[in-house]
């Protein structure tokens, strides 16, 4: 619907500007706070114009929270989650859309159901599995009496163990194994005309070749959209990294590190000094990579979510 009336134009712009202000003002306050000195930030009322201490605050935050290591960890985790997600989502959606096999609908619904179980809901069992990936199998073997039989026969105890705690694998895998991307890809694959697959068949291409050389290049915008979503999702994770990393100096993520910058009385690092300027400077650093990814991917992102370009 296209309306051209000056009043309506004014109102719609006003609504947009209010929305922009709601989104932007907190970010502006973070930025301003990050530029003030300790004295300035603790003198009410808070200034709305930036001060001159941005670089020293950034340096202080960087050093205190050890952000070099933490940002690297976050980056490794987020890129791996996003890439793993794309790989898993595209290949599962490929199987669901292009193959007819028994249990296809059952598989589809099982994947669908996992959408209703975000990581936070299943965090205890997920932690148990991460502590020993083989524990469900061990339980099955114990319950069926196979472990007992093994012990009787060989004289050794059957104990399977694969610990993911405190590792990149442990940080990444549980975040990869979710259903969101599968649905995005499924929707895209459903729009691909069947003749394209048949033409590829006539040209002699097998299923994986069709997947690699035709479906993947066609789904680049989807990939960009999914990458952006999953990168931000992984970057913002707080609870899971907090649980799985015990060696926080080497395996901690940037978002976890922010916690160390928040001044609290009796805190080992803050020592009760209300240096919110440093905390805000840390926020600026941590949010920057996420903003950068969105800014770079934005063009693809929108295209990938609204339409396939054909």
């Amino acid at each position: 619907m296209i309306e051209r009336t000056p009043v309506l134009n004014f109102v719609t712009h006003a609504v947009l500007l209010v929305g922009l202000a709601i989104a932007f003002v907190p970010m502006w306050l973070v930025f301003v706070a990050a530029t003030l000195s300790l004295q300035e930030i603790n003198t009410p009322p808070i200034s709305l114009l930036p001060g001159s201490h941005l670089w020293e605050n950034l340096a202080e935050a960087w050093a205190r929270a050890d952000l070099g290591v933490k940002l690297t960890n976050s980056l490794i985790m987020s890129v791996a989650v996003a890439a793993g997600k794309i790989a898993l989502a595209s290949i599962t959606a490929f199987a669901l859309v292009f193959f007819r096999f028994p249990g296809r609908m059952a598989a589809f619904w099982l994947i669908f159901i996992t959408l209703m179980l975000p990581l936070e809901v299943r965090i205890v069992p997920t932690y148990a599995v991460a502590a020993n990936v083989f524990s469900p199998y061990q339980t099955i073997l114990d319950v069926t009496g196979f472990s007992w039989l093994w012990q009787q026969l060989t004289g050794t105890e059957l104990a399977l163990e694969w610990n993911l705690l405190n590792s990149y694998t442990g940080l990444i895998l549980p975040l990869v194994a979710t259903a969101t991307g599968t649905f995005l890809y499924r929707q895209f694959f459903l729009t691909v005309p069947e003749e394209l697959m048949e033409a590829a068949k006539m040209d002699g291409a097998g299923p994986l070749r069709f997947f690699r050389e035709i479906l993947m290049p066609l789904s680049i915008t989807n990939m960009a959209a999914l990458f952006t979503i999953m990168f931000i999702y992984a970057w913002n994770q707080y609870l899971w990294p907090l649980l799985i990393t015990t060696d926080r100096t080497h395996r901690g993520t940037a978002v976890m590190a922010l916690r160390q910058l928040i001044p609290m009385s009796g805190d080992s690092t803050g020592g009760g000094v209300p240096d919110w300027n440093v905390a805000m400077a840390g926020c600026l650093i941590v949010v920057a990579p996420a903003l950068l990814v969105v800014a770079l991917m934005q063009r693809f992102f929108v295209r990938g979510l609204i339409a396939s370009d054909k």
């Binding site: 005309p193 003749e195 394209l196 048949e198 033409a199």
Partner: peptide
């Protein structure tokens, strides 16, 4: 299909 030695032209062309 690839072993049969047939080539096919589709109604909607089905170009990549």
């Amino acid at each position: 299909p690839r072993e049969r030695g047939c080539a096919m032209v589709f109604q909607n062309y089905a170009l990549y």
